[in-house]
Each structure stands twice: as C-alpha cells, then as structure tokens.
Simulated assay, not measured.
Amino acid sequence: MFTFDNTTIILSAVLLVMALLTPLVSPFFRKVRMTEPVLEDETDTEEEKNEAKLPPISIIFAPDDNAEELSKYLPLYLNQQYEAPFQVIVVAPQKDNETEDVLKRFADNEHLYTTFIPQSSRYMSRKKLAITLGVKAARYDWILMADICSYPQTENWLQTIARNCTKDKELVVGYTRYEDETPAYRRFEQLFHALYIMREYQKDKAYRCCFTALLFRKGIFLKEEGFRGNLKYLRGEYDFMVNKYAKGHNLAFENTPEGTLIEEIPTEKIWKNKHLFYMENRQHMLRTARHRLLPCLDQVVLHLNYLMEMAAIITGLLLNQLTIVVAAALSLLLTMILRTVIAKKKLNQFNENIPTWRVVPYEIAIMWHYISYKMMYHKADKYDFISHKL
C-alpha cells in the first residue's frame, strides 16, 4: 500500500540523501595525486639542469630462499638505463647454495656487489640485519631498498623513481601493484589500502609503506641507528622505515607506470602473513590511531547505509508500506551504482582490471576479511612475530 504521510516522506528522503552522499565517503572518491612525467625543457637554465641531475644510487636486496626470483629479476635491475653510477647489493644468507649459484652467474657484472649474513646472527630480524649490512656496504648516500619478488616494467624504472631524490627529500616511495594474474580481490584490497596511504603521503602525514620500493639516505639511516627500536620484529621493514623517518615534507612519492614495480602473485601463506604481521607491527608504530580513524569511519558509513536500506525494505514489507519499500530499493540501487562508478574510475586510473559486478561485494568484504584476520592474530603465538629475544 502506497502512503505519503510526513513520516514516510521524511524516511524516504533520508534514505535517498544517504544513497547520494555515503558513496562519497570512500577512498575511491578522494583525490590521489598522480606523479607527472618530467620532461627536460630546453629553456632550463644550467643551474636547473644541475639540480635535475640524478644521484648515484645503491640498490639493496635481501633474498631469503628466493634463488628463483633472483635469477629471473636480478638482470632487470642490473640492466637499468641510468645516467649516474649505481650498484646492486645482494645480501644473502651464508651457505644458501642455490642463491650463491645464481650470484656466480652475474659475478662479472660491474654493478653487482655481494655480501653474506653470518649464520650465527640471532635475536634480531635477519631481514633487517641484511638491510643494515647492505647499507654499511653501500658506496652512495641514496639507497634503494627493494624486494626481489618485485620487478620493474621498463629499463627506465630507476631513473623515473630517482628523479624524486632532491635536496629537500630524505625518503622516496615507489608505487607497487600485483601482477594481473593475481586474484581480483587481492588486487582490489591492495589498492583500497594503498589509496589511504597515498593520501597521507600527499598531506605530509606518512604513516607506513605497503609498497616494495623505498629510497632513503644512508647518512640519516646510520645517524638514527637504522632499525633501532624494532629490530626484534621479524617483518615490517618498509613500514618501520617510513614510520620512523618520515617527517614534514621530507617524503616524495612516485606512481607513474614507468616508476611502478610489479609484485609477484602472493601465495596464501604470504598473503595471510602480510596481514597478521602488520597487525602486530602497528602496535609498535607511531600515529596508528590517526591512521586508522578514516578507514574505520568509511567502513561504518558503508555498512550503516546498507543496513538502513535493508532494514527499511524488510520493515516496509512487514508493514505493507510500499512507499518505503520502493524508496529503500531505489536508494540501494543508487548506492550500488554510485559506488561502482566511483570505484571503477579509480581502479582504471591505477590499471586494475576488476569486473564491474565485483566492486560492491569486494568493498563490503574488506571489513569481514579484516575481522577474520583479527581473529587469527588473537589466536596466534605472539612469539611468532619476533625473533624470540627475551
């Protein structure tokens, strides 16, 4: 039965207004600044050209049972077209025969330097120890920490990300995305969280780094004692670095396709550990509450809107109030259309091909996946996240 009393009209209006406004409360709607390609202008002065010169760079890899990835991707880094000197430092565990065999194949390359972690090292993250050893062995002040399971798309990747190494910067983060063959939900979730992080970068409120390319200055790393304060935590090298060293305007971000690394399809174990270790690490990072506030607000708004629309449909059917049922159904349809259109625009901007019909269920699923990982984390042995230093 269709009725048009004041209560029905107000309720219907509220539902429609929420359907119009709540899709705007989303990381997909907020603007993320895209890095513009820098072209050399013939009118630049000599001083400006000198300022734009690329710095020498040391790239550090710390593989751990990654001989296959090292064999595939190390040549892509060694063969980068870079106008300034650069070196690639591989810090590998001692007696890792497969990794040693791979490194021997590239031993004659002028850019490659190899060193090893002693087997006796304990009571600290071996990955962080490897990075620290790499930093100390580096020839140059600018150091690029990358993951050997990620690879550049072009031979100009290094010069694209390095153009951000200016006098006023101490950190440069490079965008990373998963391979196209990665399950669609994982690519969706990765970008979903990355959008919050990129917004924090452009507002000079950097909290963490969910990407696998990070440039920093050797002098500052050594002066501030590197990973001191978080050495015992097994993971989170990129997160802890940005959380500790990002201050004011000292961080730059590169997200052009040429400056993007492609990360291999994560295994189920890697995907699960990525979530669980972050839940542990964030308890020991600064500015965590501020970082989590906006994502929590977005999830509350998203689910509250859907709950109100579904409740209105059910209540209207029970009370035979067809006006409310129609208004709620239209609101639900409008919400889904707007959220899909807004999300697809951002997904396309970052070259993520996610089927249109999956956007709404994926967006709803974010919170429920988070809850499932939260339950796993609470059941986990907390000593699994540290190097057992008592």
Results as ranks from 00 to 15, higher is better:
R282S: 11
L294V: 15
E237M: 06
E268F: 08
N250Q: 10
Y238F: 13
A252M: 04
H284A: 09
M241K: 00
K244V: 05
E254A: 10
Y238T: 06
T288M: 07
E258L: 10
F277V: 14
Y278H: 13
A246L: 00
M241P: 02
I270W: 09
Y278W: 14
H275I: 01
R282Q: 15
F277Y: 15
K274S: 15
K269T: 15
N281K: 10
P257T: 06
Y238R: 05
K244N: 08
F253M: 08
T260H: 08
H284P: 08
R235C: 07
F240L: 05
H249Q: 05
G259P: 00
N281C: 15
P266Y: 01
N273T: 05
E254F: 02
R282H: 09
H275N: 08
N255A: 04
L261T: 00
K244W: 07
N230E: 08
R290M: 10
L286P: 00
K269S: 11
A252H: 04
I270A: 14
F240N: 05
N255V: 03
R235W: 10
H249I: 01
N230T: 13
R287G: 00
A289H: 10
I262M: 04
L293T: 14
M285I: 12
K247W: 00
N243K: 05
H275R: 14
L276W: 07
K274Y: 11
I265A: 03
F277I: 07
E258M: 00
T267K: 09
T260K: 02
T288V: 04
K247I: 08
H284N: 14
K269F: 10
I270E: 13
L261Q: 03
L261N: 02
E268R: 12
R292C: 10
L234Y: 02
R235M: 11
E237K: 06
L293C: 11
K269E: 13
L286G: 04
L234I: 15
R282V: 15
K232F: 01
A252S: 13
L286M: 08
R235H: 11
F277K: 04
N255I: 02
H275A: 13
K272W: 00
E254L: 02
E258I: 09
P266Q: 03
N243S: 07
L293N: 05
A289K: 14
R290E: 14
N273A: 10
F253A: 03
L276A: 06
H291I: 04
T256L: 09
E280M: 08
H291D: 09
I262S: 05
Y238V: 06
G259M: 03
T260N: 04
Q283K: 15
I262Q: 02
Y245F: 15
T260C: 08
A252I: 12
E254M: 05
M241D: 02
L286C: 06
